[in-house]
Design a protein around this nucleic acid. Structure first.
Lengths: 144, 144
DNA sequence: TGGAATTAAATAGCAAGCTATACACATGAG
DNA sequence: CTCATGTGTATAGCTTGCTATTTAATTCCA
């Protein structure tokens, strides 16, 4: 690694993020990592608004709209019109979606395990904390 | 943040990576973050092969091919045919490219500064080290 | 030397992220 | 009650990433 790569927080983070996504996708055989936050949010049978899902996943609304469209196309998710607000729909997992959610959960745990195994046990909470502080700082910056 | 978001290394890393990219792009006014590794590799006037650039950036060859095509389209980069190997071309920055590279360097430093300011000074090297270990672990996994 | 294997780059096609904008419905103020 | 404003989704259009495949040139070996 060059000096820039070794000591740029952004460079390292972007690189690691791509490796995380690839490691998960490799385990999902055809599945992708985009639906993961939806799986986590809805795995216990709940239903949520697209807007709420976008907030949970920390992505913009159009990103979530497209992800849900692909999931709907693939039979993973159901959009039920909200009777109280005809603009809105409640999103829930289909049986196939719940099945895939379980598999995604297993893969995510495995990949996170590979990553955290690279850290000393006492470093792990520190790593999460550092990440959360960096995220908070960058979100403050974005809000300006 | 939910429990999953707070303690999933992959989730946190992906989230932070997107914030890094957005923070840089916000500062580049129309510019994007994809060319950044090319800027860093070529900023001092050197020329490199597409393959070498892809390795430096840690992206696949077609990803770099497309990035370079956009940069060429935008007048940032020049592809000079290699006289010794007609399959290959030497890539270098145009004057405009070098100008943009300087701006990108400033932005990257600023954004990295925002991130590292969220860490205690004595935590920073530790953070880079943790990231490098996680990257190494995930690359080992990918190589299996 | 001539065909096989390797290598550099390009292309096709998809996912997931973004911004900007459009559309349809809901709501609140007068 | 109507019209302006606000809100939930959808769409358009772009970048960046990936895998799989193709094309063209080089190299190696029999």
């Amino acid at each position: 690694m060059s000096y820039v790569r070794e000591t740029s927080a952004g460079y390292l983070t972007n690189w690691a993020a791509r490796l995380f996504a690839r490691a998960i996708e490799r385990r999902l055989a055809g599945g992708n990592s985009g639906p993961m936050p939806v799986f986590f949010a809805l795995q216990d049978g709940g239903a949520m608004t697209q807007k709420a899902l976008a907030q949970l996943a920390a992505v913009e609304q159009p990103t979530m709209a497209n992800t849900l469209s692909r999931m709907e196309r693939d039979g993973l998710v159901l959009r039920t019109p909200d009777p109280n607000d005809r603009r809105s729909a409640r999103v829930s997992l289909t049986p196939l979606g719940r099945e895939r959610a379980k598999a995604a959960f297993v893969s995510a745990l495995e990949v996170n395990g590979i990553a955290t195994d690279a850290l000393e046990p006492e470093e792990r909470e520190l790593f999460y904390g550092m990440m959360r502080r960096i995220i908070a700082a960058l979100e403050r910056d974005a809000a300006v």
